[in-house]
């Protein structure tokens, strides 16, 4: 699979990563190379093979419905680049 510049720009946007225009070509080349490499998987017969989600051979463990966490607002906000009045703050979001 060969990716073009426009596709790379689209993926970059989907991943919310700003990529300077002049890097798009080079990046498209690298990504295409990786995709070409991984496409060898097409050779493997996977008919009726279940896709693996986890190697752990166990089922989902559950916890009790008890309040055991939270209640430490200062600790939650202490690393925030911008906070005010107990909130995280970001540029205005328009809905």
């Amino acid at each position: 699979m060969s990716l073009d510049k426009a596709t790379v720009a689209k993926i970059a946007h989907l991943a919310r990563i700003k990529v300077p225009d002049d890097e798009l070509d080079h990046l498209a080349g690298e990504l295409s190379q990786i995709l070409t490499f991984v496409e060898q998987l097409g050779e493997v017969d996977t008919q009726d093979v279940p896709p693996m989600t986890s190697v752990a051979a166990q089922t989902l463990r559950r916890r009790k419905d008890e309040v055991t966490d939270g209640g430490y607002r200062d600790a939650v906000l202490s690393n925030g680049p911008e906070t005010a009045e107990g909130f995280y703050v970001v540029p205005k979001v328009v809905e």
Binding site: A84, E85, F87, Y88, V89, V90, P91, K92, V93
Partner: peptide
């Protein structure tokens, strides 16, 4: 809460 910001 603020003219230019959104609070979370």
């Amino acid at each position: 809460q603020h003219p230019a910001k959104t609070y979370i």
